[in-house]
Simulated assay, not measured.
Amino acid sequence: MKKLSALLALLTGFAAGPALAQNTDGEVRKIDKAAGKVTIKHGEIKNLDMPPMQMVFRAQPPALLDKVQVGDKVRFHAEKVGGAYTVTAIEVQK
Rank of each mutant, 00 (worst) to 15 (best):
residue 93 Q to A: 10
residue 28 V to D: 05
residue 15 A to D: 10
residue 33 K to E: 09
residue 29 R to P: 05
residue 26 G to W: 03
residue 44 E to S: 07
residue 91 E to I: 00
residue 92 V to I: 07
residue 11 L to V: 14
residue 57 F to D: 00
residue 78 A to D: 06
residue 74 V to W: 04
residue 23 N to I: 08
residue 25 D to K: 10
residue 92 V to D: 01
residue 56 V to Q: 11
residue 63 A to H: 10
residue 52 P to D: 00
residue 58 R to A: 14
residue 35 A to W: 05
residue 7 L to K: 14
residue 33 K to R: 13
residue 67 K to M: 13
residue 7 L to F: 12
residue 85 Y to M: 14
residue 8 L to Y: 08
residue 37 K to G: 00
residue 65 L to P: 03
residue 63 A to E: 15
residue 43 G to H: 00
residue 70 V to Y: 12
residue 85 Y to T: 10
residue 56 V to W: 07
residue 34 A to R: 12
residue 1 M to Q: 15
residue 17 G to T: 09
residue 7 L to N: 13
residue 46 K to G: 05
residue 86 T to H: 07
residue 63 A to K: 14
residue 26 G to M: 01
residue 92 V to M: 10
residue 16 A to G: 12
residue 58 R to L: 15
residue 18 P to N: 09
residue 48 L to T: 02
residue 6 A to F: 14
residue 18 P to C: 11
residue 37 K to F: 11
residue 36 G to D: 05
residue 37 K to N: 13
residue 65 L to Q: 03
residue 14 F to E: 14
residue 43 G to S: 06
residue 20 L to H: 10
residue 81 V to N: 02
residue 30 K to H: 14
residue 5 S to I: 05
residue 30 K to P: 06
residue 19 A to V: 07
residue 39 T to A: 14
residue 61 P to G: 09
residue 32 D to K: 11
residue 2 K to G: 09
residue 79 E to H: 04
residue 5 S to M: 12
residue 14 F to S: 13
residue 24 T to Y: 03
residue 67 K to G: 04
residue 32 D to V: 06
residue 9 A to Q: 15
residue 24 T to M: 00
residue 77 H to L: 15
residue 39 T to W: 15
residue 35 A to S: 08
residue 56 V to H: 01
residue 20 L to I: 03
residue 47 N to W: 06
residue 65 L to D: 00
residue 74 V to P: 05
residue 20 L to Q: 08
residue 70 V to C: 07
residue 65 L to W: 01
residue 13 G to Y: 09
residue 80 K to S: 12
residue 46 K to F: 04
residue 48 L to I: 03
residue 17 G to Q: 04
residue 66 D to W: 11
residue 52 P to I: 07
residue 7 L to E: 13
residue 85 Y to A: 10
residue 77 H to M: 12
residue 23 N to V: 14
residue 59 A to Q: 06
residue 53 M to D: 11
residue 90 I to N: 01
residue 81 V to E: 10
residue 1 M to N: 15
residue 61 P to S: 06
residue 81 V to P: 00
residue 78 A to F: 04
residue 9 A to I: 01
residue 90 I to Y: 03
residue 76 F to S: 07
residue 39 T to L: 09
residue 48 L to E: 09
residue 90 I to D: 02
residue 61 P to I: 08
residue 90 I to C: 06
residue 51 P to Q: 13
residue 35 A to E: 14
residue 42 H to Q: 02
residue 31 I to T: 00
residue 19 A to G: 10
residue 37 K to R: 15
residue 42 H to R: 04
residue 28 V to T: 07
residue 19 A to K: 00
residue 6 A to D: 14
residue 68 V to Q: 05
residue 20 L to N: 07
residue 54 Q to C: 04
residue 5 S to P: 04
residue 31 I to C: 02
residue 82 G to A: 13
residue 34 A to C: 09
residue 73 K to D: 02
residue 58 R to Y: 14
residue 85 Y to I: 05
residue 64 L to N: 04
residue 10 L to A: 12
